[in-house]
């Protein structure tokens, strides 16, 4: 039972990280109609900027904003230079152009930081673990990730549903030309929105820094998982992204934690471990297949 609670929290933690990425991806897709593969690169930019500043200054409070800022700036530059010209194109062009961006970002990161992964210390005030229920202790840092992730989800909901900026964003999604005719600078709005999506990815990168190794290619691993989240949740829907992220996070974590033990009861140890590793890596994709069989548009599609 303690193990189950711990793994459920781990799943929740992976889930909120995936949500941050999926929210950015689906926001940009739902509103601008652009599929941005380079969302994973922005995650990487956030993590690297954070790791570099943390290594130089040793201060978490400088490093975290630096990561967010770097991701947002990289995102807005990307929108201004490339993505802006892709709004009217089909998805194929968008996929290929952003694929080119990934190659560029990965190679430039290798050029600047080298191939060795970077490691980031957990900040002092989040060090250690706290008891949650009797006999179960859980790392404070991971709890903080969950808290920040959930707070961001609420903040995003308020921003989109309750503020003037959110109203403009929703209006821009429905009819771009009409919003423009009413005197809103829609290009600026899109750039800001893209920066927001980039910052969400950067936030995930910043938070991942201390618990994962910061390395080239970290973006793509999480990007593909993010796609699974978006397909399961329903493309273009923030609520769907949240539901999908939680499901994928928990299923992935629980499979990885419990499948080896289950299989070891019927097979030899090392063989069971190898098979379990394979099956749990494939697990979320099988889940996606099942969801699509039942609901081809995902669990909570954006429109109807």
């Amino acid at each position: 039972m303690p193990l189950l609670i711990e793994q459920a929290l781990n799943g929740l933690q992976l889930g909120v990280m995936l949500f941050l990425l999926a929210a950015g991806l689906t926001l940009i897709f739902g509103i601008m109609g652009v599929i941005n593969l380079a969302q994973g690169s922005l995650y990487m930019v956030g993590a690297y900027a954070m790791a570099a500043v943390a290594a130089k200054t040793g201060s978490f409070w400088l490093a975290a904003p630096a990561g967010l800022l770097a991701a947002a700036v990289a995102g807005m530059a990307m929108e201004y230079l490339v993505i802006r010209k892709l709004y009217a194109r089909d998805h194929l062009d968008q996929v290929l152009a952003t694929f080119g961006l990934i190659l560029f970002f990965n190679q430039m990161t290798t050029l600047i930081f080298g191939r060795q992964p970077l490691f980031v210390e957990i900040p002092d005030f989040l060090e250690g673990s706290v008891p949650i229920v009797a006999g179960v202790r859980y790392p404070l840092y991971r709890l903080a990730i969950i808290a920040v992730g959930l707070a961001t989800a609420v903040g995003l909901y308020v921003l989109i549903a309750r503020t003037r900026l959110g109203m403009l964003i929703r209006a821009g999604a429905t009819n771009r030309d009409m919003v423009r005719a009413l005197g809103v600078d829609i290009r600026l709005l899109y750039t800001v929105l893209f920066g927001l999506g980039a910052m969400l990815a950067g936030l995930a990168g910043v938070m991942a820094g201390p618990i994962l190794s910061v390395q080239v290619g970290m973006g793509e691993q999480v990007l593909i998982l993010t796609f699974v989240v978006v397909v399961i949740g329903g493309v273009g829907s923030i609520r769907g992204a949240f539901a999908g992220a939680m499901i994928v996070g928990i299923v992935d974590t629980v499979l990885r934690a419990f499948l080896p033990g289950l299989l070891r009861q019927v097979m030899m140890g090392p063989e069971a471990d190898a098979l379990a590793a394979g099956l749990s890596a494939m697990g979320v994709y099988l889940l996606m297949a099942i969801v699509l069989l039942v609901r081809p548009k995902g669990l909570l599609p954006a429109h109807g």
């Binding site: 490339v82 152009a97 560029f104 430039m108």
Partner: peptide, 16 residues
């Protein structure tokens, strides 16, 4: 060795 840093932007230009 870092040829992808050239190929990537080339690709973007080609698409654009």
């Amino acid at each position: 060795e870092h040829w992808q840093a050239i190929l990537g932007p080339l690709l973007v230009l080609m698409i654009l």
